[in-house]
Design a protein around this nucleic acid. Structure first.
Lengths: 101, 101
DNA sequence: TAGGTATTTAGGTAAATACCTAAGTTTGTC
DNA sequence: GACAAACTTAGGTATTTACCTAAATACCTA
């Protein structure tokens, strides 16, 4: 668990927002986009970029970095890449801050 | 507690290191600098900058930002500014990540 | 008031990050 | 194979951050 990498992957508002949106997709994404939502997969890049109001490439890189830091998990399926939160990592991060930081 | 501000105040290695050094000053600072160390105050700017191997102004700004984010507490005494960790804030941060992030 | 030490503020350059558009890749469908 | 949809990679500009030196401020002591 590389603390600095994680912190950097979280150090802008959009990235923090994405994490919040993915915590409860039904509260933040339009129902029609979630018609076949699978919690094991998460939400696809274009839906997230739409929600963020940013270009797909920008958001794609954000997500990729967050996945590299192990805060998100990416799953490629057909032509989509889905992202979901890595809850275990997030809890580990909390523990690390609590005990080690 | 402004999460983004806190995260930004922690998003470089030196700042993380400072937090670690202040957790156990006797393990990281030369004994002679700590001859009248007071845990209620912490360590002064110039000692921290020496330990970091960076200029005093650079470290002064780091410390100031971390204090603005409430992660450190600054105390001015005579011509020195001492910094110590804000343990309560750090625990709050851990809780926030655990429950809200 | 003069001079010294500790710190902060200002101002500058270099590197990193934020975003975009355009171009390429992957995968599915006709 | 041609085309479309979703995504990634490349490449560019603008803003932010890193870090320095120089100058200003604060506070002590003679």
């Amino acid at each position: 668990m590389k603390l600095l990498e994680i912190i950097k992957s979280l150090s802008n508002q959009t990235r923090l927002d994405i994490l919040a949106w993915l915590k409860d997709p039904f509260a933040y994404f339009p129902a029609e986009e979630l018609s076949d939502y699978d919690p094991a997969l998460g939400v696809c890049v274009s839906d997230i970029s739409k929600k963020a109001g940013m270009s797909v490439p920008t958001v794609s890189v954000y997500l990729k970095n967050m996945a590299a830091a192990d805060i998100l998990v990416a799953t490629r399926k057909d032509q989509w890449t889905y992202y979901k939160r890595n809850e275990e990592s997030i809890q580990q991060l909390a523990e690390l801050i609590k005990d080690k930081l």
